[in-house]
């Protein structure tokens, strides 16, 4: 199997976010860099949130995937800057999120200096209605807010912008 960057990135699309299994780490922008040294591969990842418990699992799965493909121990390093932003999630991944029942991040990551943000219109991923309300900015995981739809009456997660 060819040991080049494009091929490694393709292999890594098999590594999913353990909390959102329809997303892979490449689509999410968690994989920042692949360096090919003579003796080993170095993969640079960046956490979505400082305390995200999925990062350890992701790092383990990246190593396991590369071990299977090349029989070598890859190194995974974590890098905080530039800080991960939802702007890096690909369009394709946003569509996958919606199909999975999670409303994808709407627009660009916001201006952090604003104390109170303008409320956003988030369409319900199940029925498409824009008649929805924010229940809480803190949802089932760090990256999600909790909304409800006033038309189909279903609660849903929204992948919030950071």
């Amino acid at each position: 199997m060819e040991r080049n960057e494009a091929h490694i990135l393709e292999l890594l699309t098999a590594v999913k976010d353990p909390e959102i299994p329809v997303l892979n780490v490449v689509d999410m922008g968690v994989i920042r860099k692949v360096d090919l040294n003579d003796d080993h591969i170095v993969v640079t990842i960046t956490p979505t949130y400082s305390g995200c418990p999925a990062m350890d699992v992701i790092s383990m799965n990246v190593k396991a995937t590369l071990k299977r493909a090349f029989g070598e121990d890859a190194e995974v390093v974590s890098q905080l800057s530039p800080a991960w932003t939802t702007d890096w999630i690909t369009d394709e991944a946003r569509e996958k999120l919606r199909e999975y029942g999670i409303a994808p991040p709407e627009g660009k990551s916001h201006d952090k200096s604003q104390l109170f943000a303008e409320p956003k219109v988030i369409a319900c991923p199940k029925c498409g209605s824009e008649n929805t309300t924010l229940v809480s900015e803190f949802g089932s995981t760090s990256c999600k807010a909790h909304y409800k739809c006033s038309d189909c009456l279903e609660p849903f997660d929204y992948f919030k912008c950071i």
Partner: peptide, 24 residues
């Protein structure tokens, strides 16, 4: 300091949500 700066860059995004929550 590169490390302190990188941690700040990451953390401020999170604190933006915390600050809004407690202020509300």
């Amino acid at each position: 300091d590169d490390t302190l700066r990188a941690i700040a860059e990451k953390s401020i995004k999170e604190v933006t949500y915390h600050r809004r929550h407690s202020s509300e």
